[in-house]
Design a binder for these strands. Sequence first.
DNA 1: TTATAGCCTACATAATTGTGTAGGTTTTTA
DNA 2: TAAAAACCTACACAATTATGTAGGCTATAA
Lengths: 211, 211
Amino acid sequence: MIRIILFEDNPDFIDSFQELMHETKGMELVAVYSNCKDIVHVVRHHQPDIIIMDIDMPGKNGLEGLRMLRAAGFTNLVIMLTVFDDNDRVFQAVCNGASGYLLKLSSPDKIVEGIWDAINGGAPMTPSVAKQVLKLFSAPFQKANDFQTLTSREHDVLSLLVRGFSYKMAAVELEISIETLRFHIKNMYAKLHVNSKSEAVAKAIHNKLLE
Amino acid sequence: MIRIILFEDNPDFIDSFQELMHETKGMELVAVYSNCKDIVHVVRHHQPDIIIMDIDMPGKNGLEGLRMLRAAGFTNLVIMLTVFDDNDRVFQAVCNGASGYLLKLSSPDKIVEGIWDAINGGAPMTPSVAKQVLKLFSAPFQKANDFQTLTSREHDVLSLLVRGFSYKMAAVELEISIETLRFHIKNMYAKLHVNSKSEAVAKAIHNKLLE
DNA sequence: TTATAGCCTACATAATTGTGTAGGTTTTTA
DNA sequence: TAAAAACCTACACAATTATGTAGGCTATAA
């Protein structure tokens, strides 16, 4: 039995969602709140399996509620609801730890399907949001031309700088002299068109993300 | 008419995919290649709307082909195919600019649906990959506690450092003395638990992503 | 009123980074 | 064989960053 909390201020949607939950086997709507100002206490109390959260609510909007919940360390599944396929807002929700999102105007089937999707380890999204997430996610890798010109050693050096190594530490790590390290660094900066370690590090991270 | 190129070495899949394309209105399979070593020339020649690419192929695997294509500046839609729901591999494909991916064992309906999905601006993925993408994507935002302790001014300073400003430049920009700037920097480094500009910059980028 | 927090500024000095110059070795390619 | 690429090392010195210490002002909360 999937325990669900709904945060939503629109009475029509609340009604229809309650009906839907009545008709859906395996799901139980344990509580409905019209705002999320006490979300942390609510979730601690009800221990839901999944939270359905309207993005637009008076007072604290769904995004803020989501942030509060995550900041408090709760990892419950949270599906965001919105009327519009507003990529920016939804995207921000995703960035703040949403488990997925659904359009309010989706058919009841789609809504139930989205919930099961999330429960089963998925991340329900509309195609356009999925694409935006992927596009942003992969974009840094597509500016990697400067990095492709780095020699193996230059790449080694940069990797250590990104990890916070000082020159001295990096030279010890690579078993080369600090003079050699500076030699590589100078060449690398020229290739990357930067003038300082922090610029090189910034550029590297933007382009590698997972370093 | 959607023009499709297939890169795939498995004869069975090629056959079934060709049949599927025969039966599907609006889609035309213009070419099939069993490896992607000449992908750049192939795509330049055929100008496909979408490429279906097997991840595992002898010689250059699909990932490498995808990288070559993106490195050459082509932005065609690319859906990756795999037998297994191998998150790491698919995830890497997504990071390198794939438009989505499909399981080879998907039903013909799902495959066609995935292609339409991508053509219509979506990013077909299985639920588990979607969740991994979202999880990794949102993770940095969940380690933002150190940044929440920064004062407004410290935040200003950090933003400029991230953008490559030197101390002198940042002081001019904020209209403060370099002494003041160093004061803020010292406090900020203590809060962020870093010891150098590049470490602060690295930490900031990992935690803000979109700066 | 006092304490706290945040911002501003300066000085002194040490440490680190950045740049130019020079020389050498090994491997690969034309 | 000569040239190019990559890696190694050193010196000299300039520029920037990092750290400790000190003093002051304003706004806010207790």
